[in-house]
């Protein structure tokens, strides 16, 4: 797969753009967190596209954001489990 560029993305309809970004992000996130990959990718897709493109180019920034998403998910799930 050739790297996704801003111009490639810009030429796609908005809905397709998120799909394209998700298809590229998912395998990278899956390598880090297989069990949560779908959820984390969904959370990241809410970030604006320019930042997502940057993350595709910078493994470090992607890694930071994925860890943040895992922390948010764990805190969220902890809230669900905690006795009310």
């Amino acid at each position: 797969q050739e790297p996704l560029t801003a111009s490639m993305l810009a030429s796609a309809p908005l809905q397709e753009q998120k799909q394209m970004l998700g298809e590229r992000l998912y395998p990278l996130i899956h390598a880090m967190h297989p069990a949560l990959a779908g959820k984390i990718t969904g959370m990241l897709l809410e970030i604006d596209n320019s930042e997502l493109l940057h993350m595709l180019e910078s493994p470090e920034s992607l890694h930071t954001k994925v860890e943040e998403a895992v922390a948010v998910l764990q805190a969220h799930q902890a809230k669900d489990i905690s006795p009310k």
Binding site: E23, G42, K65
Partner: peptide, 18 residues
């Protein structure tokens, strides 16, 4: 630092229309 990520976000499934 409060994260802006949404834990309720829709799950992404590769190959499925997002």
């Amino acid at each position: 630092r409060k994260s802006s990520l949404n834990p309720e976000a829709k799950e992404f499934v590769p190959g499925v229309k997002y």
